[in-house]
Computed example of a mutant assay.
Amino acid sequence: MSRVQRFQATVTVDRRGRTHVHIPFDPDQVWGPKPRHPVAGSVAGRSLRGTIEKLDAGPVMTLGPAWTCLALTDGATVDVVLEPEGPQREDLATDIAEALDAAPDAAAAFDGLAQFYRKQWLRWIESTKRRPDQRPVRIAEMIELLRAGHKERP
């Protein structure tokens, strides 16, 4: 199944100049449940990185006024291309994925991190090449720190 989602959306622009892109699908169903969905892609041909928020009215991505110097008009219909940003659970090494599967609370925390933090955790674990005995120790430490609410190693 493709991670890339292509669709047309009608945007709303609020009085503070923020552009709200209404997402016509449930990102939890398409990309797996997460507390938040960091995404990359484009809106109206303009590149972006953002986060899909879950609101009562449905999923929405809000883009600040600095996103573009050429504002979209309220009610405009635009082409949108989005995909999850950064390493996803299915991209992980088996031992890391299994550890996260065994700790759903840590997995939810990991899945909700921005790509910078996810990549930082994975680089730290992968840096055990010369000391492979440290890899499971680091994976266990990552799980405990994520459970404690840390985005990165203290």
Rank of each mutant, 00 (worst) to 15 (best):
A109T: 07
L145A: 07
G58Y: 03
A97Y: 00
E144L: 10
M1I: 04
R18S: 15
P59A: 14
V43K: 01
L146E: 10
P59W: 12
D133A: 15
K129N: 02
R131Q: 12
A108V: 00
H22T: 11
Q88S: 12
V78T: 11
K119L: 14
I125V: 15
L113A: 08
P136A: 06
R130Q: 12
C69M: 10
V43M: 05
P136G: 06
K151I: 00
G75T: 13
I139D: 08
K129P: 00
E152K: 06
V21M: 05
T12M: 08
L145T: 09
P35L: 12
L122Q: 07
E83V: 05
R123L: 12
A44R: 02
H37I: 07
R15E: 15
Q5S: 12
I23G: 04
E53W: 03
T128Q: 02
G58N: 04
S47I: 00
G41V: 08
A148N: 12
D111W: 00
D111G: 12
F110Q: 04
V30F: 01
G41A: 08
S42A: 15
T10G: 07
R6G: 09
L63D: 11
E126R: 11
Q8D: 13
Q88W: 02
V78S: 11
L48W: 03
M142P: 12
R3V: 06
L48P: 07
Q115W: 12
L122D: 10
M61G: 06
T19Y: 04
V43G: 07
V39Q: 04
G58L: 02
D133F: 03
T62N: 04
V43C: 07
V43S: 05
T19K: 04
E141A: 13
D95K: 03
G50M: 09
Q8G: 10
H20Y: 13
E98K: 09
A66E: 07
T77A: 13
E53D: 13
A9E: 09
Y117N: 13
A99L: 03
A114R: 02
S42E: 15
I23N: 04
G86L: 04
R135V: 11
Q134H: 14
P35C: 02
D105G: 00
G50Q: 08
L63V: 14
D95G: 06
E85M: 05
A93Y: 00
V80Q: 02
G112K: 04
K119C: 10
G86C: 05
T68W: 01
P87G: 02
T68Q: 05
T12R: 15
S42T: 10
P154M: 09
M1V: 11
L63Y: 11
F7K: 03
G149E: 06
D91F: 03
R123Q: 12
A97M: 01
Q115M: 01
R15Q: 15
K119D: 14
D28M: 01
G86H: 02
H37N: 10
A9R: 06
A108N: 04
G17F: 08
V13H: 08
R135T: 14
V13L: 13
G75P: 13
